[in-house]
Simulated scan of single mutants.
Amino acid sequence: MNSEVRRACLEFAKWLRKEFAFPIRVLVYLKKDDQIKNKFTKELVSATFFAPYDKQEEPYIRIATGDYMELLHELGKDDALASILNSIAHELGHYYQWIDDEELEEESAEDTADYIMGLYSDTRDHP
């Protein structure tokens, strides 16, 4: 894994743990692949959230980070890192939907990601 991606994700995770409640632990797996396969739809995607039926089981998030170098060349460092962090924030939107027994839907997850990323961007100049 790219060291800059790892650093940015660890810093983001540390901030998230200070700012948000996680009533059920959620693991975040950073994958070195460009895309990962959604276990249910079999689609190739950049991120997934596993929401177990039983809340005694831990949920988890998987994030593809293998396209960082491509994003770096296309978007620049800050936007490339922000793209990966936004994927984490989006999947956390699904986590909170799951915690609240809501239907997992994209628009609300995007709103949550925008909210989280807005708060985070106020705390630093660069991801």
Rank of each mutant, 00 (worst) to 15 (best):
Y95F: 11
T123H: 06
G76M: 06
S108E: 12
K42M: 02
L85C: 10
P52C: 00
S108W: 05
L10R: 12
D54W: 05
P23A: 04
R124N: 03
K42I: 03
E43D: 15
A80R: 09
H126F: 14
K77Q: 14
T48I: 15
G93I: 07
D114V: 11
K18F: 15
R17H: 09
W98P: 07
D33Y: 08
R62L: 02
E91Q: 13
D125Y: 08
F22M: 04
E74R: 15
L75C: 14
Q35W: 03
K14E: 15
R62G: 00
F49G: 01
E107R: 02
H94K: 04
A64H: 07
E4W: 01
I63D: 00
Y29W: 09
M69A: 15
A109C: 03
E4Y: 02
R124Y: 03
E57H: 15
L16S: 01
L30I: 09
D54Q: 08
E11N: 10
H90F: 06
P127S: 07
S3K: 06
E74S: 14
A113Q: 06
L81C: 06
L30C: 10
E11W: 07
L44E: 00
Y60A: 04
S3F: 02
A21V: 08
S3R: 09
R17N: 10
L27Y: 12
I84V: 01
A8K: 06
E102Q: 15
F20W: 00
L75T: 01
D114C: 06
V45R: 00
K32F: 06
Y29F: 12
F40E: 15
S87K: 13
E58K: 14
D67C: 14
M69L: 15
Y68A: 12
R124G: 07
H126N: 09
Q35V: 08
F49Y: 07
Y95E: 02
S46C: 15
S46L: 15
A64Y: 05
I63H: 04
I61Y: 02
S108L: 14
F20C: 04
A8N: 06
D34G: 11
D111F: 06
K32P: 12
S83N: 10
N86H: 12
C9R: 07
A13Y: 05
V26H: 00
L85R: 07
A47I: 02
K32Y: 06
A80V: 00
L44T: 07
E102F: 11
Q97I: 11
L71K: 15
K39Q: 08
I84R: 06
I84W: 08
I116Q: 00
I99Y: 09
Y96D: 08
L85V: 03
S121E: 06
F22E: 02
L16E: 01
E70K: 15
D67I: 04
L81R: 08
Y60H: 15
I99F: 10
A80Q: 03
E74M: 15
I84T: 01
E58S: 13
Y60E: 12
R25N: 10
I63Y: 04
S83C: 07
